[in-house]
Simulated assay, not measured.
Amino acid sequence: MTVSLRHALSEIRKNYNSLNWWRNRVFVPYLFGTLTRFYPKYPGYGEAVRVMEEDWDTMIVLDACRADSFQSVADLDRFDTYDPRVSLGSHSSEWTRRNFQGGSFGDTVYVSANPHTSLEAGDAFHRVVELWETHTDEDWGVVPPEAVRDAAIEAHTEFPDKRLIVHFMQPHGPFIGSVIGDDHRNESEYWQAYAENLEYVMGYVDDLLEAVEGKTVVTADHGQAYASGLTERLGIGGHKPRLRFPSLVKVPWAVRDGERREIRVGETTEAKGEQVQDRLKDLGYL
């Protein structure tokens, strides 16, 4: 018997009477997740974007930002082109693994408010600035966008010859840009809070568009779905991995042209291996 089979049987023995376990570990990923047979293509939306193969100097990532929400909130006239893309993942860990894990990007500095960057690809970049570790607001349980903006400008000043990835946690909850909490049950209120959180972070995105020269892309790692009633009981709300629904994988791709930077390749850093479980729980991943 293989190790993986023994592990699977052990999990079943421990959780056979847990509805949540069957839903989250079997039903959602393997029944609804069968749509991943189309990976990396999604019918009607084309090839999924592999972000490191695209042409940019700076990539700004808005966590859990749906393409349709971005189109409603952002001033698209600020960008030279806008063309929604399909993400490689419907969850931060999945998106991070499929885009970066096992790669060597010595020409890139990653400023991240999301713990999954360090957990899944901490050794893939020239430098990872781990803001989740140093700048989490303990009252909100999330890194505020002003800390991300400031760290990104500082990183660009220190590494002007590197590509720059800037990963904001917003509009992912907790909704610090809204007077409505992210634990309410009404769907219209939820999307109102989500939009307010997106509006809040876009002000800091605008700051970066002005402060950092070069060609800049604004995108997202994945989208977001709302669950209530039957969909909530089925466990397909939020942004579970392996689900290829348009609301989860159709993401913005807004391009702002600028005078290009001269990029040089350097060494990659070593993964630190810090424990990130508490932060992932704060963000609702665990």
Rank of each mutant, 00 (worst) to 15 (best):
M1W: 12
V3D: 15
S4Q: 13
H7L: 14
I12N: 05
Y16N: 06
N17C: 01
L19P: 00
W21A: 03
R23I: 00
R25Q: 15
V26W: 01
P29M: 03
P29H: 05
L35H: 03
P40Y: 12
P40V: 11
P43W: 13
G44D: 13
V49L: 15
E53F: 00
D55M: 07
D55F: 08
T58G: 10
M59C: 15
A64N: 13
R66V: 06
F70Y: 11
Q71A: 15
F79I: 10
P84W: 07
P84I: 06
R85N: 01
G89P: 06
S90I: 11
E94G: 08
W95A: 12
R97Y: 07
R97G: 02
Q101G: 00
G102K: 06
F105I: 03
F105V: 02
N114K: 12
H116R: 03
H116A: 14
G122L: 10
L131C: 12
E133F: 04
H135V: 00
H135I: 00
H135Y: 07
T136W: 01
V142K: 11
V143R: 08
A147F: 04
A152H: 08
I153G: 00
H156G: 01
H156E: 13
E158D: 14
F159E: 09
R163E: 06
I165H: 03
I165G: 02
F168G: 02
H172M: 07
Y190I: 04
A193D: 03
E196H: 14
L198G: 07
E199H: 11
E199P: 00
Y200M: 11
V201R: 12
M202F: 15
Y204I: 04
A211N: 05
A220W: 04
D221W: 03
H222A: 07
A225I: 04
A227W: 03
R233H: 13
G235I: 08
G235S: 12
R242I: 08
L243Q: 03
L248K: 11
K250N: 13
V255N: 05
D257R: 13
E262T: 15
E267I: 01
E270A: 15
E270L: 11
G273Q: 07
E274A: 09
Q277Y: 08
Q277D: 15
D278M: 08
R279C: 07
Y285K: 05
